[in-house]
Structure formats: C-alpha cells, structure tokens
C-alpha cells in the first residue's frame, strides 16, 4: 500500500548522514592505510560507502513508487495515498503493511549493505597483503 515509504524515509535520513560524514572527512583529509611493507594506499571514504546504501534505497524506492502508482495505491494529487481517502480501516491496514513489509525491506537492504561493507573490508585487507608479493 505504501511500504516503500519506510525505505524512502531511511534514504532521506541516510542522505543527511552522508553529507555530514562527507563534511567531516573533508576537514580530516584523506585517510590512508599502510601495508606491512610500508606501501600507502588511499582508503575508500566511509561517506562513499554510505552512498552505496543511499543508492540502493533511493533506487528501490523510486521503482517501487512507480509500482504503487501502477496499482493505484498512490495518486499524484492530495492526499497522495489512496488508503488515506478510504477511511480509518484502510489507513490502519496501510500502517500495518508499512510496519511489516516496509520495515523488512529497509532492514534487508541495510543487511545487504552491511554485508557489502564486510566483504569490501576483507578484500581491501587482502589487496594490501598482496601488494608486496606482486612487486
């Protein structure tokens, strides 16, 4: 009914967080990591990694919003949510769906993103170890 509003809300919050982190990183300068042999590499900024989450959330929300428009669950005029004009029962059903399906969508995307962080961190460590051997 309007489940995509939950990941969209997360996207709005995380976009603000990304901007704040970006500002802090600019002030702090470029972070580098050093391998065992003293090889220095630029570290991927955390703001960029938050950007991955935002792109997933915004991308998914945009396409799901279209799907909801397709099914007549949202309309391009006030009150925008069809359930809002159908009475309290429909609103309660919509909120229930947002609380279950919507929250699960946001949670799954966040879990996938956390997995991406873990994998990229391991890949980064592996790459740093491989540098002296490759030279």
């Amino acid at each position: 009914m309007a489940c995509f509003l939950v990941p969209m809300t997360e996207a709005i919050v995380m976009t603000v967080v990304q901007k704040v982190v970006e500002k802090k990183e600019k002030k702090a300068g470029v972070e580098t990591v050093t391998s065992a042999d003293g090889y220095r590499m630029e570290k991927l900024p955390f703001s960029k990694k938050i950007g991955w989450l935002n792109k997933l959330l915004w991308g998914g929300s945009a396409l799901l919003a279209f799907e909801h428009l397709w099914h007549g669950e949202i309309v391009p005029f006030f009150p925008f949510l069809t359930a809002a004009s159908e009475g309290p029962e429909a609103v309660s059903e919509m909120l229930g769906e947002m609380g279950t399906v919507g929250v699960s969508m946001a949670a799954l995307i966040t879990v996938v993103w956390l997995g991406m962080l873990l994998v990229t961190s391991l890949m980064q460590k592996k790459a740093l170890k491989a540098i002296p051997a490759a030279e």
């Binding site: 489940c3 792109k55 997933l56 991308g59 998914g60 945009a62 799901l64 399906v101 699960s104 995307i109």
Partner: peptide
C-alpha cells in the same frame, strides 16, 4: 545497477510476504 538491485531486494521482501 543500483536502481535494479534496490528494487529487486524490495520486491523480494514483497514476494516472501
């Protein structure tokens, strides 16, 4: 890629429900 993966994950949840 981000658009399609984001939507796919969200529709996966929808499909599970």
């Amino acid at each position: 890629c981000w658009l399609f993966w984001g939507a796919s994950l969200m529709w996966l949840v929808d499909a599970i429900f």
